[in-house]
Amino acid sequence: MSLLLRLLILPLALLLALPAAAKGDDAPLFEAVHAFLYEQSQALGDEVMIEVHPPAGQFPACQAPEPFLPGQRELAPGRVSVGVRCGEEGRQVRYLQAELSVFGEYPVAARDLAAGETLQRDDLRLARGDLGRLPRQAVREIEAALGQQLTRSLREGSHLLEAMLRTEPLVERRQRVVVEARGQGFRVSREGEALEAGGRGERVRVRLTNREIIEAEVIGDARLAVIF
């Protein structure tokens, strides 16, 4: 379907989706809220369903409605509160409740996976569903899980949670490591013992040969750095 045809159909689709009680003076208000939520939700998924609930009480018609998200919150699937400024200079403000359903793709296990496995692309596949029904910590992009280790086993078709993933350790506890001290115009290396495990970019404690304990960033296999 061409973009022009979509633009021609969209206002009619929004109007048909309005509650029966809003087909009169409230139609511009509801149509504005529908259009606002539709525009704001495009980055959340590739298919959006919006249901705006009529207010509990009776109010005068909203002139020149200007919808906004209260508190500058980020839009998320589920129950949504939308503020609307009405009238001259938006002096009147109303609040409507809406239900936002967003459908899109998210990664799931392509086979049964064991705890400790490092995830590769073939271990995952994309599933499609209502993103609002996923747990808050669900992983939404395959790339975010690649190279990560599972902290627990996962059955085929199950979605991933951020808490199930950890960066693959490049430094193990009690491992002999090299710590580089870096600064402008100098670099010094010292040996030490890692007191905890860590992946790339994580900071771990290290005991140097003089028994001094410092914190350094993991930069490679058994290699850490302290930047001055």
Rank of each mutant, 00 (worst) to 15 (best):
L161A: 06
A110L: 08
Q148R: 12
Q63F: 08
G201N: 09
Y106L: 09
L150M: 04
A61I: 02
E105R: 13
R91C: 01
S158G: 13
E191S: 08
G183L: 12
P19R: 11
T118A: 09
I219K: 04
L126A: 09
A76T: 07
G24Q: 10
V226L: 14
P28L: 01
R205P: 02
G45K: 03
A109V: 05
R174K: 13
Q92W: 06
L96D: 14
K23C: 08
V82D: 03
R128K: 05
E141Q: 14
L146K: 10
R111L: 06
L154I: 11
R174W: 12
L75H: 01
F228I: 00
E215N: 10
E89Q: 14
R94P: 08
R91L: 15
M49Q: 07
A56S: 11
H53C: 12
R128L: 03
G132Y: 03
A114M: 06
G78D: 04
S189M: 14
T209D: 12
R174D: 11
E162D: 15
R190F: 05
P54R: 08
V108L: 01
V102W: 13
E99M: 04
L134T: 08
M1N: 06
E74S: 13
T151L: 12
R155S: 07
V226K: 01
V108F: 11
T209V: 11
G71S: 06
D46P: 01
I219Q: 07
L100P: 04
L75Q: 12
N210Y: 01
A138S: 10
A222Y: 00
V204T: 15
R182P: 02
G78F: 05
R200E: 07
Q137A: 15
A109Q: 02
Q184F: 15
R91Y: 11
V139C: 06
Q175I: 01
Q175E: 15
V84W: 02
Q149W: 05
R203A: 06
R152I: 00
G87L: 11
L146R: 09
L124D: 13
L131I: 10
I227R: 04
E217C: 03
A114T: 07
A144R: 12
P77V: 03
I227G: 04
A43H: 14
L12F: 15
G83V: 07
R187M: 07
A27I: 01
L160R: 10
L150C: 15
L150E: 11
D221E: 13
G199F: 09
